[in-house]
Amino acid sequence: MTRIDDLPLRDELRGMSPYGAPQLDVPVRLNTNENPFPVPEALVRLIADRVSDAARTLNRYPDRDAVVLRTQLAGYLTRTTGYQVGPHQVWAANGSNEIIQQLLQAFGGPGRTAIGFDPSYSMHSLISRGTGTGWISGPRNEHFGIDREAAVAAIHEHRPEVVFVCSPNNPTGTAVEAETVLALYEAAQAARPERGALVVVDEAYAEFSHRPSLLPLIEGRPTLVLTRTMSKAFGAAGLRLGYLAADPAVVEAVLLVRLPYHLSAVTQATAHAALEFADTLLGYVDELKAERDRLVTELREIGCEVTESDANFVQFGRFEDPKDVWRRLLDHGVLVRDNGVPGRLRVSCGTREENDTFLDAVRAVMKEISE
């Protein structure tokens, strides 16, 4: 049987592993940061009606530039952040991962490099390598925040064309201060004085944060980009809809590399409906934030070391053998994420009942280990 190594694969892809988390049939799945609340029935009916309407014209291509959807997204950002955004500043794609890919296709590529601050979202490095962009792993401090001075020094040393900042950060949940983003942006422009460098702020979990969005920072900064997703706060992971906000010139650049008609009519119709239910869907966010804070408190009471979180998940430890703890929790019917951060695991925030089951499992596992 032919092996992948027998194929004429690009050298930089050899030895890599595809992104993914275990998809196991267990009572409590808290490993992929999904919103645990199902879509309301009223929205299900609206989606069905909108998709039915779209189906009647499936013989035609969808709106290539998703103008109506981008207008809705711009309105959502303006209303929820207080910062005025127009549709010409917004672009949408199949999940924020495709947004990241398009940005790297336009601003990265062979002979160019991107930097991120690990541990962080692993798709930043995977998509970088997939687009032929060199990857640099920048530093974080012992509390998993970005060490501003060290990060600025790394940017000056490596002079990357693309800088990734994840806030709140995945998998640690830590938020990044606006002052730090500004410092990294200024360093990136100084390191690339000819045309500057792209700085991408990944706000996939922004709606769960105690801090205001970093969106206003794009004002007057033409190479600062903010990315978002409808997978988390909107509870629409199955929709696969991500978007960015930036200077209109960035949107023009992405148009050069996007595939024709990349967003299907069905995807656009579903996203239209979901955005009309934004207030209802965001109502679940407050409940999840309260549950996240409860997880932090109770995990510490159990004796775990917990990283402060502004997301819908919590990083906890510190374990001598996190893989063993992961397996033991699975034996108790709870699936969490082993993200490879030394001594730690990550749990997504579920319903109150799911979180109770998880906490009981942690207590049982801690007792097993102590004995």
Rank of each mutant, 00 (worst) to 15 (best):
T71F: 14
T71Q: 15
G75Q: 11
G75L: 13
T78S: 14
T78M: 09
T80Q: 06
T80I: 09
T81Q: 07
T81E: 07
T81G: 07
G82T: 03
Y83L: 12
Q84V: 15
H88M: 14
Q89K: 10
A92S: 09
S96R: 15
N97D: 15
I99V: 12
I100Y: 12
L103Q: 04
L104Y: 10
G108T: 02
G108A: 01
R112Q: 00
A114Y: 08
A114D: 08
G116K: 14
F117V: 04
F117N: 07
Y121N: 13
H124C: 10
H124L: 12
S125E: 13
L126P: 05
L126N: 03
I127Q: 05
I127G: 02
S128R: 06
R129D: 12
G134D: 07
W135P: 03
S137A: 15
P139T: 03
E142C: 11
E142M: 13
E142H: 14
H143D: 15
F144R: 08
A150R: 10
A151I: 03
A151S: 08
V152P: 07
H156M: 13
P160V: 01
V162W: 02
V162N: 03
V162K: 04
V162F: 05
F164S: 03
V165L: 05
N169E: 10
N170K: 13
T172P: 05
T174Y: 12
A175P: 07
E177K: 12
A178Q: 09
A178F: 01
E179G: 11
T180L: 10
L182D: 05
A187K: 00
A190L: 03
A190P: 02
A190C: 03
R192C: 04
R192A: 02
P193G: 02
E194T: 04
E194C: 05
G196L: 04
G196P: 03
A197Y: 00
V200D: 02
V200C: 09
V200R: 06
V200T: 10
V201M: 09
D202W: 09
A206I: 11
H210D: 14
S213H: 09
